[in-house]
Structure formats: structure tokens, C-alpha cells
Amino acid sequence: MNAPVSVRQSRSQPDGATGVPAILLIPAAIAVAFLVLPLAALLVRAPWSTLGSLLSTPEVRDALRLSVVSASLATLISLVVGVPLAWVLARSQIRGRGVLRALVTVPLVLPPVVGGVALLLALGRRGVLGEPLYSATGVSFPFTTTAVVLAQTFVAMPFLIISVEGSLRAADRRYEDAAATLGAGRAMTFRRVTLPLIAPGVAAGAVLCWARALGEFGATITFAGNFPGTTRTMTLQVYLALETDPDAAIALSLVLLAVSILTLGLLRDRWLMRT
């Protein structure tokens, strides 16, 4: 958890006697304490001796598997439709791109539980789209694993879009121009030149998207419900465990914390090394 601080220090420049004015130091220290202490508390209170048995119950394994599978599917969907959308936002000449970008990034700032309500009203059995679908095919999404994936995709895809769009804007377009002058069509240029150029941005966006999907709670419990094996993901399991078995809740939280730190490690080059 000290990684961000130490990385910054190692890259600091000798530009003054102390580097930080006291007036900034105290609020900064408060911020560090506020962000780090709760996580430290999780480690201090962790039931280390019984951790193995707490994490090997069938409910936990079900929840963990469901979380990993649904978050991966959500990331896959986000890649398939999100990367093209990012290209549209970064490169196309479509009018109202700014409005479009604002619209598709709303879920980024929307409280997830509101996202869940919105999904229910759109895709629920009595929803705007869900009702005709249900009466035509008998398919309804709420209370299914599909709903979990949809909820996660809804909240996580904007992270991927933003990340990929940023990479597209930063990419040197002369390579694409060169490919075009050499006779490559637009599809081929995108596949053989653009995609490899922005691959690190896509990878970072996918990792971020996956982590966000894994942590999804509000939209899931609202839209997908809460049932072991089908819709009870790790975060829902933590919430439930807190009422009956706080030690299990801490153990599960540790797993999610470890995943978060791993994610940060994977994104290290993009976020922590930034000068």
C-alpha cells in the first residue's frame, strides 16, 4: 500500500530543501491516513488462523467462481462493443460526439444502485424493453446470472471506453496514414496498425473494467437479486456475511483487497509511474 508514495519519492527531483511546504504536508498526511488506515484495519483484524477454512466453504467458492466468471464475461462484452465505441468517440466525424461521450460515461459517476433500478425499468419483466421480450419469448433477465453480467457490464464498460479512447487520441496517427498510403483498407489499418498501437491502453482498460465488474454491488443486488450460485457474487457474500459471520466477511474482503492490489500492480506502469 505504500507503493504509490515510495514510487513517487524515488522519482522525486531535488528542487527544494524539504520538497513539501508544511501547509500541504498536514492535509496530505490526513488524506494518506484516511485512505490507508481502513485497509490496515482489515489486515489487523483478519482471522489469519482460520482464513483457510473460512474461504473454503462451498458458498464462498460458489461466490468466487460466479464473480470471476461474470466479471470476465462483462469484460469480454465490454471489449467487443466498447473498443469500437471508443474508436467512434476518438476518430469519427459524427456530430454530437461530445454528447455521446457524456451519455456513455454517465454510468461511471452514477450511483450503481440507480443503475440497477434503471436496468430493472429497461430490462425487467415489466421493463420498457423487457416486457415485449418477455411476452414474445418468455425470457426475463432479473434473478439470473445473465442479469449479473449485464449489471457489471453497465457499470464497468465506461472504464474501458475512456481508457481506450485516451490511447487512441494519444496514438500517432501517422502510422495509420502510412498504412493507408501503402494501400491498406480502413478495416485492415484498424486491425494491423491501430489495435497493436493501442494494445497497452486496451489491456489497462480491460483490467480496470474487470476489477470494477468484480467489485460491483449496488446494480447487481438491485437488478439481479441475491441467490447463492446464480446471483450472489463475492461482494454480496461479504455484505451477507457481515450480519452472520463477521470473520468470514473480513476473510472475503481480504480476497477482494488482494485482487485490487494485483490490479494496481498490473496497471502500475500507467498510473503509478506517471510523472
Binding site: R8, Q9, R11, S12, Q13, P14, D15, G16, T18, G19, V20, A22, L25, I26, A28, A29, I30, V32, A33, L37, T275
Partner: peptide, 25 residues
Amino acid sequence: MRPPGRPPALQSVVLGLLGVLGLLG
């Protein structure tokens, strides 16, 4: 934004943290 650094600053950070812990307590 210049990154902070150097041992004197780090000591101040630690002192600051201790102060904050006192306040929180």
C-alpha cells in the same frame, strides 16, 4: 506538481500521521 521526497519530509509525514491518529481517537 512536484513529487515529495527526502527523509526530513518523510519524518514530518510520520509526525503528521501520529497527530491525525490522536485526533481520530
